[in-house]
């Protein structure tokens, strides 16, 4: 009995969010005959990895009180590096992937080093990186989409008989690891503490700068993995990939209850945020509502999801 109570207690804070997700599923299932079926689930599972990787990194960055606007461009850079190495230089995916992820990680690390080292708001630094990395992508690809084909496609396609792709399983594993890092490791605890009160952390004798830089580098690394996920889904390295995706990533984090002021966040909840956004996108496309309505509905759902969560928190507190 105690265990049940304890479990429900742990689950309670997430119920509002899960409810929003289930309500969306229910709504689309009534509106479209074709929504509530296996193929839709597979299609959604197939599409979430890119954003999921980004959101793991973004959640950590937001928790330490930063923001990373460069994720879309870093994703594109890693995708471009992957494409050029695999096609122009005919490297194997296993040789090209570490380089691609490394390039994105370095981009993230540079974000962190400049922002933390010189005390410049990460908003500005990563805004700069957004442009720099996008430009670099166009240089690397000569502004042309690079078709890679089946050598990379398998990673983003459902495994035979398993419904989900390697990319999806990898993304889920990353979410779990991210959550464990945040809640169970010393560094995760420090991240939350830094976002809550950086000065108190300093006065507790903890050096936060290296950790913060590492978090930005991890965000870059996640962009690299997201780059792999997207490239494999498209079978192509697209220099225009993921423009504007940073806003979707931030929205997913915020829906998941991550504070833009730092100190509060949860990777699993951010992932539910991703699912909400994706279910919404897929559902609206299947129902076939007009483009204008799609945007309005998406905006409303983002705000309402955050609102429900805020109200639920307030209600449970009093």
């Amino acid at each position: 009995m105690n265990r049940l109570q304890g479990f429900l207690k742990q689950l309670a804070p997430h119920l509002g969010l899960v409810a929003v997700l289930l309500v969306l599923v229910a709504i689309f299932s009534t509106l479209s005959n074709n929504f509530f079926q296996m193929s839709t689930v597979i299609s959604i599972a197939n599409q979430v990895p890119d954003l999921t990787f980004l959101v793991v990194g973004m959640t950590l960055v937001l928790i330490i009180g930063g923001i990373d606007l460069s994720v879309g461009s870093l994703l594109a850079v890693s995708s471009a590096v992957l494409g050029v190495l695999m096609v122009n230089y005919e490297w194997s995916i296993w040789a090209a992937l570490p380089i691609a992820v490394l390039v994105a990680s370095i981009g993230g690390g540079v974000n962190g080093a400049i922002s933390i080292g010189f005390g410049i708001p990460s908003f500005i630094v990563t805004l700069g990186m957004l442009e720099i990395a996008r430009g670099a992508t166009k240089v690397v690809t000569d502004s042309k989409a690079i078709y890679i084909g089946s050598r990379i496609e398998w990673f983003g396609q459902p495994l035979p008989g398993a419904f989900v792709s390697p990319a999806f399983m990898f993304a889920i594993a990353t979410v779990v690891l991210g959550q464990l890092f945040l809640t169970r490791t010393v560094w995760g605890r420090y991240c939350i503490a830094i976002g809550t009160n950086a000065e108190a952390v300093r006065m507790s004798g903890i050096r936060s700068a290296p950790l913060c830089i590492a978090i930005f580098a991890i965000s870059g690394m996640m962009c690299g993995l997201a780059g792999l996920a997207q490239t494999s889904r498209l079978s192509t390295a697209d220099p225009n990939a993921a423009i504007g995706i940073e806003l979707a990533a931030i929205a997913a984090c915020v829906i998941g209850g991550t504070s833009l002021m730092g100190g509060r966040g949860n990777v699993i909840r951010s992932f539910i945020g991703v699912l909400i956004i994706q279910v919404l996108q897929t559902g609206l496309a299947q129902v076939g509502v007009s483009d204008a309505s799609k945007q309005i509905i998406t905006g409303v759902v983002i705000v309402v999801a955050v609102l429900i969560d805020a109200l639920r928190t307030r209600w449970s507190r009093s």
């Binding site: 479209s32 074709n34 929504f35 079926q37 193929s39 839709t40 597979i42 299609s43 197939n46 599409q47 890119d50 989409a145 997207q230 889904r233 498209l234 697209d238 225009n240 990939a241 993921a242 996108q281 897929t282 496309a285 299947q286």
Partner: peptide, 15 residues
Amino acid sequence: VSRQVALVEEMVASG
């Protein structure tokens, strides 16, 4: 483009 690829998959999924 990425969204358009997703749309293709979603349409196939919806039968």
